[in-house]
Nucleic acid binder design. Sequence first.
DNA 1: AGGACGTTCAACCATCGGGTTAAGTGACAC
DNA 2: GTGTCACTTAACCCGATGGTTGAACGTCCT
Lengths: 115, 115
Amino acid sequence: MRDLDLTFSALADPTRRKILAMLLEDDMAVTDVAAPFDISLAAISKHLGILSRAGLLSQERRGRVVWCKLEPQSLRDASIWMQGFGQFEPVNLDPFEQFLASEGLIGAPGDAIDD
Amino acid sequence: MRDLDLTFSALADPTRRKILAMLLEDDMAVTDVAAPFDISLAAISKHLGILSRAGLLSQERRGRVVWCKLEPQSLRDASIWMQGFGQFEPVNLDPFEQFLASEGLIGAPGDAIDD
DNA sequence: AGGACGTTCAACCATCGGGTTAAGTGACAC
DNA sequence: GTGTCACTTAACCCGATGGTTGAACGTCCT
């Protein structure tokens, strides 16, 4: 429970949140994670390192490919911490619908379209 | 919903999380918020500004004293975002017990005692 | 009016974070 | 072995962040 610093600062970056949302659909190789972004592969590698150190994803090398897998446990810890600040009823969107919401594709009309 | 950047980066700092936990018990004046910390009042003022900009608290000037009040709505937004990554059942600790947990005073024995 | 109190602002410093490019490593293909 | 592919590391740049001190501002007291 003492990695809230790591967890929250990892989540503070929109690129990293988007990566997590991508991994929600399936495990991915580093190169494939990098594909939708306009930044260098090295930058993505750093982002993945940060997410990994925060426990938000795990990386497993298979041959020369490194597979990235979402690890929701740290998110769960952070979520528990948050729930101390109000009785937030669970929303129960299914993961894919939630992914869309995080993209701003559904939800309040004023929302921006990044993340 | 598009201030997740602000919300998460505000939450990434242990001083600020502790401030939020303090405000969970009651509204406080800036000076009183600063009291338990070893850093300058100006630094606390900056932290409060960051929390305020993130929508995590509101500040109301009454006379010469500025009252700080917890605003859980942004936490709620962030919590909703998180719940897309797993079916996290709500934990339903009451707020004070949760505050203790965030202090490391209850919970897993290996936990550190900061935040 | 003058002074003390509560808070913020301004200037500065050191460290961190996200980005770059270029070089390095390790596994597969020929 | 040579080359290519999939990454990671190293060195660097620059803007953001967390801290400081000292001055400024607005409010209350006498």
